[in-house]
């Protein structure tokens, strides 16, 4: 035991700086993943901030040069599910919000498609939705998504495949939400601000 050793790992300013720079660069991605899990922008940012701080606190256990994006996504996901276990009732409120959102849509053009997709995503089982988001939008390989979700690679592949099929079916039938969407987070969708971009199109 040298004098510099302590209960906490000794701070290494250079390493910390490199870690922080990379972590800051991942914030936009963390926000997007959080949004896809919660569907609510405010809750998503709270979640992303919690995950960011947890990642910082755990920086000593991260091996620099390995995949920090996957590592932070895993932290965020774990944080989400541990919080969610404490607040199942929230999903009911989300469902009502989703229905209001759908009712508000009467423009048959551009903005609808994103909302349709959001509603369709909301109908998927949570594990299928997150697998599809990670692989289909987050840019992760199946192997990375498996690490993030803590399951086998084959399981991720199967979830993504089922999610794609189910989503296509939901969107083609056009009966998202109406036909008794499974409770879940009906706003457990990718984002609440797609309208902004779509309206400017």
């Amino acid at each position: 035991m040298t004098g510099s050793a302590s209960v906490r790992t000794t701070s290494d300013p250079v390493r910390d700086r490199a870690f922080k720079t990379e972590l800051v660069g991942l914030i936009p991605q963390l926000r997007a993943f959080a949004r896809s899990l919660t569907g609510d922008p405010t809750a998503a940012d709270d979640l992303a901030q919690d995950a960011m701080v947890k990642a910082w606190d755990a920086r000593a256990s991260f091996e620099m040069g390995t995949n920090m994006k996957a590592w932070t996504f895993m932290i965020l996901r774990n944080q989400f599910y541990s919080e969610k276990r404490r607040s199942w009732r929230q999903s009911q409120l989300d469902q009502e919000a989703a229905e209001r959102t759908l009712v508000a849509i009467d423009d048959p053009s551009a903005p609808v498609a994103l909302d349709e997709l959001r509603m369709g995503l909301a109908m998927l089982p949570a594990e299928q939705r997150e697998a599809l988001v990670l692989v289909g939008a987050g840019g992760f390989a199946y192997e990375e998504a498996a690490l993030i979700c803590g399951c086998a690679v084959g399981t991720v592949k199967s979830r993504v495949s089922r999610a794609r099929r189910a989503l296509l079916e939901i969107l083609q039938r056009g009966d998202y939400v109406r036909d008794g969407a499974p409770a879940g987070d009906a706003m457990g969708s990718i984002l609440a601000q797609a309208e902004r971009l779509s309206n400017s199109a």
Binding site: V24, R31, M52, L114, L117, R118, L121, L132, G136
Partner: peptide, 19 residues
């Protein structure tokens, strides 16, 4: 579409609270 939904959020400015 899925990538657009995700990238829309990625491209939002990061709120000051994070930094």
């Amino acid at each position: 579409r899925l990538r657009q939904l995700f990238d829309d959020v990625v491209n939002e400015p990061v709120p000051d609270e994070f930094l």
